[in-house]
Amino acid sequence: MKNNIVLYMKEILKLFLILEFKIFSIFPLKDKKIVFCEGTNSKFSGNCRNIYEYLKEKKYSFYLVELQKKQNYNFIKNYNFYNLKGIYHLATAKYWFADSGFLSFLPKRNEQKNIQLWHGAGAFKKFGFAELRDKNIKYNKNKFKSIDLLSVSSDKIIDIYAEAFGIEREKIKNLGIPRADIFFKENEKLRVKEEFFNKYTNLKDKKIIMYAPTFRDNDKGNFNLKLDINLMKEKLEKLDYVLLLRLHPSIKKDNIQVDNKFSFNFGDYPQVSDLLIASDILISDYSSIIFEFSIMKKPILFYSYDVEEYIKDRGFYYNYYDFIPNKINYTTDEVVNSIINKEWDLERIEKFARYFFNPFDGNSTERVLKEVGLWEEEK
């Protein structure tokens, strides 16, 4: 009963937002206005930010509309999605760049361009309509019809995204993932490392392990960290390793104990690409973060203690056991031994990266902007 009331209220809210959008659509469309739309708690640090960084010196006006506004920025005006001003800017902007699909129910004007830069790279666990279908959940087949362009990182995953979004294959193009461009640029990575270690001088001469597990529905309550930090400290601290925790923004981290000597909580660090560049080893499970890290041909360990349960609950586009470019670790002991014994194959990781990033270069931002007519060649 309670769930039905919540769903009903959400539908009523959508109708109000649609009405507001239609009212604001009487105002002229502004060809030089660009709205970025984010709904992934990324603190404006992902694909949309890359597009902004290229265009910010051009003659455009920029606005950020977030599903949940958590802070103000001093370089761009930002609004909550439910703020009238946010809806006004969406109704009058020529271009929408989005990293999630929360705004797709709005009745986009014919002259507007809705460019979808999905927040996850590659294709791993099932999402969108594919996940709902497998769970026999009813869904709105027209939800994403307003998308004009969806950019992906490889021809091999176009069909997967067509199914997940329920849109025509012709709307999906292999232009790349803008936020991944930095991982191909050696000078940029050196700059990031220098700035990072100037700020965190205590980490400069350490071998950095980053643990970035995926979000699980049962993590919404009291989160239970399955990685034994004390055991890792006992075995690895003497070998000059340190552990950075990068947990999902939705997880309550009050009960996560770190000592800020061996273990550190970087859950609120704004730019995840900095952490990937600074880290020497990544530990994850089912998170799409592995795709970007693999570009740099660095070790990835898979701590997938609940793999069978996760497969049944969520499902994957590939056979998980064959898909990942390393073996599965089921316990912290196994993770520690894999690190000490260097149990990884960097050539296999590179092959994995080239499968999901093809072309294998750092020119995704350029390709996306050329496709929508916003790229300007340097004079």
Rank of each mutant, 00 (worst) to 15 (best):
272 V>H: 07
53 E>A: 05
304 S>I: 10
154 S>G: 08
32 K>F: 05
155 D>W: 12
136 N>M: 15
120 G>S: 12
63 Y>A: 03
360 F>Q: 00
352 F>I: 03
43 K>F: 14
128 G>S: 10
79 Y>T: 02
100 S>Y: 06
111 E>F: 05
210 M>N: 06
133 R>G: 15
160 I>P: 04
248 H>A: 07
179 R>Q: 13
312 K>R: 10
96 W>H: 02
226 K>G: 14
173 K>M: 12
107 P>L: 11
138 K>A: 14
305 Y>M: 07
256 I>A: 09
303 Y>S: 03
105 F>T: 05
140 N>C: 06
87 I>Y: 01
179 R>D: 06
55 L>Y: 13
109 R>P: 00
211 Y>F: 08
184 F>W: 11
365 T>L: 05
55 L>A: 07
18 I>S: 12
293 F>M: 09
234 E>P: 03
345 D>H: 02
235 K>T: 05
161 Y>A: 05
173 K>F: 13
64 L>D: 06
353 A>M: 05
42 S>L: 12
9 M>V: 14
121 A>K: 06
65 V>F: 03
262 F>Q: 07
223 F>Q: 02
224 N>K: 14
29 L>M: 12
372 V>L: 11
244 L>V: 09
40 T>R: 13
200 Y>H: 14
136 N>F: 12
195 E>A: 13
237 E>P: 00
332 T>Y: 09
148 D>F: 13
14 K>M: 10
112 Q>E: 09
312 K>D: 11
137 I>A: 10
162 A>R: 09
251 I>S: 02
144 F>L: 06
176 G>K: 00
366 E>K: 13
71 Q>R: 15
314 R>S: 01
114 N>Q: 11
290 I>D: 01
194 E>H: 15
65 V>L: 08
299 P>N: 08
376 E>A: 06
299 P>F: 00
53 E>W: 08
338 S>T: 15
94 K>E: 08
218 N>K: 09
